[in-house]
Amino acid sequence: MRDSSTAVQGGSPYIAVRGVRKSYSGHGRTTHALGGVELQIEQGAFVSIVGPSGCGKSTLLQIMAGLVPASEGRVDLQARQVTEPPPEMVYVFQQYTRSLFPWKSVEKNVSYGLENREKLPASEIAALTREYIGLVKLDGFENHYPWQLSGGMQQRVAIARALACRPAVLLMDEPFSSVDALTRVGLQELVLRLWRELGLTIVFVTHDTEEAIYLSTRVVALGKPPSTVRMDLQIELPHPRDQITTRELPRYLQYRHQLLSQLFSDEGLASGAKPNPA
């Protein structure tokens, strides 16, 4: 379906995280969240980052997005260092209720990034806004305000707003962690469909290992802080994926086994199973 060997462009990886450390100091002590993360991401990949809570996976994503500076190390996008939010990337926040602008209608929220990212004639902005509202199936809700929509619909507005800028990379921070299970399945399918249709590169932070395996072409597990990459797993499951049959594949279960064993042993939790059947 997609060829992940187009990863390297001119010898340098598409996204490169090199020796990224992050420490916070405050209240008289220093917390080391990230302890030297190394990660290379090829174009078109769907990479999920999992790890125990507090391992700094959201922080890593914010550093990749250029929203937060690293204490040490660097992030390169197409061999250019990321120092501020690059125009090719958009960050989708976990807290959609706080990330959407409550004083803007759905339409104005979706066109917000578009209006600021590029100089386009109003008619083109309107057309693109309509197109992306349609893509997340919110036609008819253009003039609604965020607070008039359900949680799942609000997150779809946030996704449409991000995609309307036609980014090459989408950075998603636990985007489905506060919606109910069925809405979540719908949003997972939406993101998979958009990833395939638009040829996006997605970096997806989640605490849900099953969600990570189901969605991704690769899953990266971070350890306890100061975190480093503890496991890097290529997910070779067939596309298009299916919420029921994909999750029943022996391969899927094997990936699940590997990931959970890693996470549990890092946390000192015994699972009773032998690690790494592979």
Binding site: L67, E84, P85, V90, Y91, F93, N116, R117
Partner: peptide, 18 residues
């Protein structure tokens, strides 16, 4: 003002007085 809203503006390339 919610910092997430300001971060949102920043991820869309908005900065400073804007």
């Amino acid at each position: 003002v919610d910092p997430v809203q300001m971060q949102t503006a920043r991820t869309f390339g908005v900065k400073g007085a804007k």
